[in-house]
Write a protein that binds this DNA or RNA. Structure first.
Length: 675
DNA sequence: ACATGTTAAATTTTT
DNA sequence: TTTAACATGT
């Protein structure tokens, strides 16, 4: 039988975990040790050997990508699995959504079955409207999103007081009511409402299987607990060394507390198949105390440590280096550049574009990032749900698209039913009755008379129309494929687009394209590349210097980064980081790597010690300072404008500004750029 | 209404 | 360090 092949490739550790019979079991899987392989093998084993139907399993992942990977593997064995068998397979949020849509008595929580899922920004819009309507006093409104998130979390933990003396608690309860009234749930609400309802109504799956369990936050753990019936068995895989999202609510202890809570048997997957011995040797220095990590590959090429003068220099060097690798036969898709902060990508983008190196920046684009689509989605939201007043108000009040009504006019039209104030409002209100004849994207476009409302005279018209056409086509196709009634299908699309995203810009997600990947260390989790370059390893940047400074997490983040590399790892730092966060010179993390795994400099076999490298760096620094002393250095500052450098040392820089006079800055914090 | 002093926060990101 | 919002004073 075909499925048995899945087991023959497992090593003894993996097989032991898959064949295990205990009620609850956690797998402590080292980086690169075949975590997903074991998880999928377990599912296949349960299904084919133990005859557990897929619909009796709940398989929880954190990303849609991971969920799709698992489902795809199952389809490879049997392409005929019906969709509804796999409703329990997906992210925590999508599984919760399916439970709410198909079973849980959510009327008890003040919702109806056709509720809508909203993104965080939309909740913020509603919150602002609530604040305005009830004349609430809220401090730090610019950080409301973060504050709301915190308040929701602390309400979850039963805390009733807030840090500031304002109406935030009133806002939270009014907002909760308003969301119920408008029949909307945020991502948080999906789990929160599910948890509340699961207390009385147990779904009791036969098995709960969890991927990357170390990333679970409080509410997700509660979801697992509520979902788990007396007879439910548990299988969870994770790696305590890869906790990099504790700032989002996961904790390092999740793995062990789960084990204790369910008296789970623990298995370990110790062998890393991914990386060369040199890379693993370095990685071991960044492990949690007491963790083991063994590999099976040979030494491989040593880790290269490079020093560059500044980010621009580095980008120029890297461009050449990558091109060189490519000329020698390596594919661009096997190469990746990791950095700590999003905005570090700009230098690379500019230089790579100039040099014609294909690249892709990993940045998620959602519908909300494109203003015209953000507006259009709200038009559709109100059209299918007339309780959704906040969307209607947004649509009418938007200054760029639609009719651009004033606050009071829009309120009159929407809340007091003065429909004649707005043709667009009429169209939205009549949509449900009039949409019978709509079959194509163009029909939808025509119905709402969108040409008039997306500003045909504006410079962005062409681009906007293209985006609108693309989205409308995607919507119509989606409804056709699901064979749903038009209105219901449209509502379903809006929900799933919030949860799974929509690929409007196909070129952004084309994984087949042979391009270098640029991403933050966080985004690199779960991926692997033949050649990995980690840049900007300066103290202050890696590890990032912050106020609530948790070095442990930064160390794990760096660990995640270096363990992405299969064959070749290159680390670099700047002499002049040109960022107020970073200090000149190598981060401590560079020194932590044992010399035996390191080859310094690129050319030649002779090894240069770290000491020598430091001397070189010092020399380069001195050189550049001497240079600075001879030639007059011009600098630019956002606020003070142009100026010349009067003097500088390791820490301070004194600048004479043309229109301000002299001012001294601490180098590490000043936002000066050389011109 | 405007001027001046004080305080908190800045980053990573999936759904 | 820098910024924006908040707090208080005239």
């Amino acid at each position: 039988m075909k499925y048995e092949n899945e087991f023959s490739r497992l090593n003894e550790y993996q097989r032991e975990a898959v064949l295990d019979e205990s009620e609850a079991c956690v797998v402590n899987a080292n980086v690169g040790s075949g975590k997903t392989t074991v998880l999928i093998a377990k599912i296949i084993y349960l299904h084919y050997e133990k005859r557990v139907p897929y619909k009796n399993m709940v398989v929880l992942t954190f990303t849609n990508k991971a969920a799709n990977e698992i489902k795809e593997r199952l389809f490879q064995l049997d392409s005929e699995i019906p969709q509804e068998e796999l409703l329990g397979f997906g992210t925590f949020h999508s599984v919760a959504l399916n439970l709410l849509k198909n079973g849980l008595p959510l009327e008890k929580m003040g919702y109806t079955r056709d509720f809508a899922v909203i993104e965080p920004d939309e909740e913020l819009d509603i919150a602002m409207q609530v604040i305005q309507e009830h004349h609430l006093t809220i401090k730090y409104k610019n950080r409301l999103k973060k504050r709301l998130e915190q308040e929701m979390m602390s309400a979850q933990e039963g805390r009733q007081t807030s840090k500031y003396n304002d109406d935030i608690l009133t806002l939270v309860s009014l907002l909760t009511e308003e969301k119920k009234k408008q029949n909307k749930m945020t991502f948080f609400d999906l789990l929160h409402v599910s948890n509340a309802l699961l207390a009385d109504y147990s779904a009791e799956p036969e098995w709960i299987i969890i991927d990357e369990v170390q990333d679970s936050d409080k509410i997700q753990l509660e979801f697992i607990d509520k979902l788990k019936g007396r007879e439910t068995k548990l299988f969870a895989v994770g790696d305590p060394n890869q906790v990099i999202y504790s700032w989002r609510g996961s904790s390092i202890n999740v793995f062990y507390s789960l084990k204790r809570k369910y008296s789970a048997k623990e298995f370990t997957l110790p062998i890393n198949y991914r990386s060369s011995a040199s890379i693993l040797g370095a990685a071991r220095c960044f492990l949690e105390n007491g963790s083991q990590l063994s590999g099976i590959r040979d030494q491989g090429s040593k880790i290269v440590i490079k020093n560059h003068y500044n980010p621009f220099n580095e980008a120029e060097y890297l461009a050449e280096r990558l091109q060189d690798l490519h000329n020698k036969g390596a594919e661009y898709r096997e190469m990746a550049v990791f950095y700590r902060l999003q905005n570090q990508s700009h230098t690379f983008e500019a230089v790579f574009t100039k040099k014609g190196i294909p690249y892709e920046v990993s940045l998620k684009k959602t519908i909300r990032d494109i203003p015209v689509l953000n507006w259009l989605i709200k038009v559709l939201r109100f059209s299918v749900n007339q309780e959704d007043l906040s969307s209607a108000l947004y649509v009418l009040k938007d200054r760029f698209y639609g009719e651009g009504l004033s606050d009071s006019m829009a309120n009159k039209a929407v809340k007091q039913g003065m429909v004649s104030e707005s043709r667009l409002l009429e169209l939205m209100l009549q949509f449900k009755e009039s949409c019978a004849g709509i079959g194509t994207g163009e029909d939808l476009y025509e119905y709402f008379n969108l040409d008039r409302y997306i500003r045909p005279t504006s410079a962005s018209y062409g681009e906007d129309k293209e985006a609108v056409d693309a989205l409308l086509d995607i919507i119509v196709d989606y409804i056709a494929e699901k064979q749903m009634d038009f209105v219901a299908g449209l509502a379903d699309f809006i929900n799933s687009s919030a949860l799974y995203g929509v690929n409007i810009l196909q070129k952004d997600i084309n994984n087949q394209a042979d391009s270098v990947k640029l991403m933050t260390l966080h985004a690199s989790k779960g991926l692997e590349f033949k050649y990995v370059f980690i840049v900007g390893i300066n103290y202050g940047l890696i590890p990032l210097q912050t106020r609530g400074f948790e070095e442990e997490e930064e160390r794990r983040l760096f660990f995640v980064g270096i363990t992405r590399a299969k064959d070749y790892l290159e680390l670099s730092y700047y002499t002049n980081p040109e960022s107020y966060k970073a200090m000149p010179g190598a981060s401590r993390y560079i020194d932590m790597i044992p010399r035996q795994f390191v080859r310094e400099g690129m050319e030649g076999a002779e090894e240069i010690s770290l000491q020598d490298l430091r001397k070189q760096v010092e020399a380069a620094k001195r050189e550049s300072q001497e240079e600075a002393a001879v030639t007059v250095l011009k600098v630019k500052h956002e606020k003070y404008g142009l100026g010349t450098v009067v003097s500088e040392d390791d820490d301070m820089i004194l600048v004479d500004f043309e229109s301000y006079g002299q001012k001294e800055f601490i180098k590490a914090f000043s936002e000066l750029s050389y011109v």
